[in-house]
């Protein structure tokens, strides 16, 4: 079973040093902004800030910390674009809250669980972004299940690899 139900006492809660807490999201934003110059399709399929949000939220297992992590990373991502600030902020706030809430109840330490969780949250993120962008900002958006699934799978694969790398920075409380 990739996902196992675990009681609150059984799951481990991690924390991160301040440099990691600030540096990793910044690095993710930097890579996300820089790589499309060399690999134009990168921005179409991958969302590194989202993966970092999910990772921190699941590792901390604290919904409030998770939602604030998502909000800050999302807002910073919005600031680099030209669309109104808050689109990614709202979407990642929800993802951060959801991922940390899920982390409290489920053991999501293994690769299979991480794959499914990342895929699911990518779709949730896309759906929230799409809804807010169309509903509030009146942006012309087209929803494509094919693109959503492909990008979700790509992010899930990258997430599994990335999460194992980021596990090195975890500190037990």
């Amino acid at each position: 079973m990739p996902i196992t139900y675990t009681s609150g006492e059984q799951v481990e809660v991690y924390r991160f040093s301040i440099p990691v807490t600030i540096g990793i999201p910044l690095l993710a934003l930097f890579v996300q902004a820089f790589l499309p110059l060399r690999f134009p399709r990168f921005a179409v399929y991958f969302d590194l800030p989202l993966l970092v949000t999910i990772f921190f939220a699941m590792a901390r297992r604290n919904p409030i910390a998770g939602l604030f992590t998502g909000a800050v990373i999302g807002l910073a991502q919005d600031m680099l674009g030209h669309n109104p600030i808050g689109l990614n902020g709202i979407a990642k706030t929800i993802v951060g809250y959801g991922a940390s809430s899920l982390g409290v109840k489920l053991d999501v330490e293994n690769a299979g669980a991480r794959f499914l969780v990342t895929l699911g949250f990518y779709l949730i993120h896309s759906a929230v972004y799409f809804t807010v962008a169309r509903g509030m900002v009146n942006m012309t958006q087209t929803w494509s299940w094919l693109h959503g699934m492909l990008a979700g799978l790509a992010n899930a694969v990258l997430g599994v690899v990335l999460f194992f790398l980021l596990d090195k920075f975890k500190q037990r409380t």
């Binding site: 919904p63 939602l67 604030f68 109104p84 600030i85 808050g86 689109l87 706030t93 807010v132 509030m136």
Partner: peptide, 20 residues
């Protein structure tokens, strides 16, 4: 937790509406 989530979302929606 839920109240804080709603509060943070509300603030962002408010900010978004102001920009729009």
């Amino acid at each position: 937790n839920l109240i804080i989530l709603v509060g943070v979302l509300f603030l962002q929606v408010l900010g978004l509406a102001t920009q729009v």
